[in-house]
Design a protein around this nucleic acid. Sequence first.
DNA 1: AAAATTTGTTTGATATATCAAATAAATAAT
DNA 2: ATTATTTATTTGATATATCAAACAAATTTT
Lengths: 145, 145
Amino acid sequence: MQMKTPTGTVLYTIEQTIKEYRKICQKNIQKIVSDITVDQCLVLIILNEKPKIAQIEMAKLMFKDNASITRIIELMVKKNYLIREPDEFDKRKSKLIVTEKGEKTIVLLSPIFKLNRKTALDGLSMDEIELLDKLLNKIISNCKI
Amino acid sequence: MQMKTPTGTVLYTIEQTIKEYRKICQKNIQKIVSDITVDQCLVLIILNEKPKIAQIEMAKLMFKDNASITRIIELMVKKNYLIREPDEFDKRKSKLIVTEKGEKTIVLLSPIFKLNRKTALDGLSMDEIELLDKLLNKIISNCKI
DNA sequence: AAAATTTGTTTGATATATCAAATAAATAAT
DNA sequence: ATTATTTATTTGATATATCAAACAAATTTT
């Protein structure tokens, strides 16, 4: 519990952790595919598992704002990772279809995702990981009250 | 250890945690001062404790890019929280002087910062907090290799 | 069915993140 | 002292975050 600087609390360690993690993720991803970001990748993976998911649900899953999702998808359409088609059942939505390029990218990058997780959590026991998760969830619920 | 979704790992919990924490921070700050962000606040507090700090050091402390710091400071100068003056000893740098408005803001918001931390960490024992910090630091060093 | 409300998405404005390149001053090497 | 290198900061380009407002389609209420 060092408190010398204003940044000397766990909460800043949390911030630091996620930033370092995102850095290696992006680095490892770009060794394989150069024009995609971590978040865009995650969109692909989520769509692959839940093809009919609404943007609003995707936003919740990714802890992002709806507006962010709209723009991320926009860029992915521009880069030909996704195609938009009108949803027949609900005209407010659009179907998000993963293109060939998108599919190939998922295949290429899925192992990288696993590697990233493994790298980050190396040396942590299952118990420690569970405890970490528990403590973080406690903080989350504290913040939500 | 739920793994149903692609976001079902501790690493996403970490991301979620910091986002929720930032949300209550911003919310509580804006109850008192309406035109300042969490990061801008942190700049004030850091400058208050280390008035002669270089931007590059500030960037490290805040886990941010130098460019981000430049722009955050720019906005703070515009909003009259800071003044820039050329540094006599090193002309590449500028002295960052906290204005009256800045000083007042620090006084107003310091208790909020403490409250935010207390709120977030409520119910966690010292041991748990230390363990959390230790585990996170392990992840950080894993990512840096 | 028409009006009111809710829901899913988009758009605008502003703040920040990130990388690379540009600057300019400070320091080291020759 | 001149050149070369390093250091601190800035700028440009692009991606994302966040809030509020706009919008249109879906749903509920009356």
